[in-house]
Simulated assay, not measured.
Amino acid sequence: MRHRIAVVGSGPAGLTFARVLHRHGYPATVFERDSAPDARPPGGTLDLQEGLGQLALDKAGLLEEFQALSRPEGQAMRILDTDGTVLRDWRPGPDERANPEIDRRHLRDLLLGPLDVQWGRGVTRVAPGTGGVRVHFADGRQETFDLVVGADGAWSRVRPAVSPATPHYTGVTSVETSLDDVDTCHPGLARLIGDGSLAVYGVNRSLVAQRNSGGHVKVYAKFRAPLDWHTNVDLADAEAVRSSLLALFDGWAAPVLDLLRHGTAFVHRPLYVLPVSHTWTHVPGVTLLGDAAHLMPPLGAGANLAMLDGAELAESLATGPGDPEETVRAFEERMWARAGRWAQMTTAGLERLVSPDPAEALALFEQVQPS
């Protein structure tokens, strides 16, 4: 296989795909609209699962390096009632550390390694044709490739080449904030959160705090609301957003609300998904990975599936005999089946985690965590 391969997007899916190809001696060029790796905050921590994200890293030859960077203790989970009562306090034992956490920026840097990434190269569209697939860039340039892999997330510019599907709003919004140097600046909150994550579930809303490395904590306020819930709130005004959230969570225990009171900036992230069984008629020279192919609620599966998508497609192309188009087509069939199962589970999970009955969330947690 010596084809011109373009990867659009430098998230977990695209970088894993390119890194596995690189391990097998095949080049791919990654195009990323961001101007540099640190052009925007990389997001929170990820729980990489043994049969998914960790399997992908193993295929890339990076599993040992991942294990050195990861935080097994980050799997710990505390669940509180809205009055502050501790309902569940689970900490992983020596035999329960199979799915450790890793910061997204650490994972990104691990995957980047020697890859050829062209930063600041936003793609506007791709056009399949008889002589290859033409990639149109935001700067007006065009390049032609034999295979274009769309790994450019929820609002993919590659997706329209194969599918008319667009993400739709779930009815749940997430507002993200963060705490820095929590152990020194907010020791009470550090103890409240513990080594991993803290979750508090109320009627149609939840607060989740998640430790990252270096004393950094991400806080997510999730609630059911119309997409235009913020009509009278200036999202650029941190104090206005804070006041709105504190009113929304009024009556919750003071230490829990301190997660919002001490948050720095606020980022509005309404949750969108693609149809649960999103498929398409194969288009020669173009395919999709990760969120571009199967955007689902953010309940721990997305990045894992994205990485395994990338690793499996790259490995199949690098080692499999026969026509690359047949290889891609066969991969798509496997990806659709797997993603469909996870999309059903995460969609049902979101319904239970942001529910009129907070007991649903605790029951769901009991199903997926050891006793």
Rank of each mutant, 00 (worst) to 15 (best):
A236Q: 11
V30Q: 12
Q210A: 09
R159Q: 09
N304E: 05
Q142W: 06
A199K: 05
V276Y: 04
H268R: 11
R121E: 15
L248H: 15
A161T: 07
E32Y: 12
E325F: 01
T287C: 14
P164K: 13
R78H: 02
P167F: 05
A292W: 02
L15S: 09
P41R: 05
R97E: 13
A151Q: 15
R329T: 15
V126N: 09
K222E: 13
T173N: 14
V368N: 01
A247Y: 10
G129W: 07
P284I: 02
T45Y: 09
A311Q: 07
F145S: 12
W229I: 14
V368R: 08
L147V: 03
G11V: 15
A337L: 14
I193D: 06
T82I: 06
D228S: 15
L55V: 10
L299V: 09
V133L: 10
G202N: 07
A209G: 02
E351I: 00
D116L: 14
A361E: 00
V175A: 08
S197Q: 15
H186M: 10
R159K: 06
E333F: 04
H278G: 04
H262M: 00
R105S: 14
L52D: 03
Y201H: 14
F137L: 15
R341F: 05
R78P: 00
F31I: 10
P12V: 10
R2M: 12
G113Q: 04
L235W: 04
H230P: 06
E351T: 03
E96R: 12
E50Q: 11
Q67V: 05
Q54H: 01
L274E: 02
L246H: 07
R4E: 13
E96A: 11
Y220D: 09
H216G: 03
V86I: 12
L317H: 05
Y169M: 10
V200I: 03
L69N: 02
T279P: 02
H136M: 13
T177W: 07
E333Q: 15
S178L: 07
L111D: 06
G153W: 05
V217W: 08
E326I: 03
S277K: 05
P128Y: 10
E50F: 10
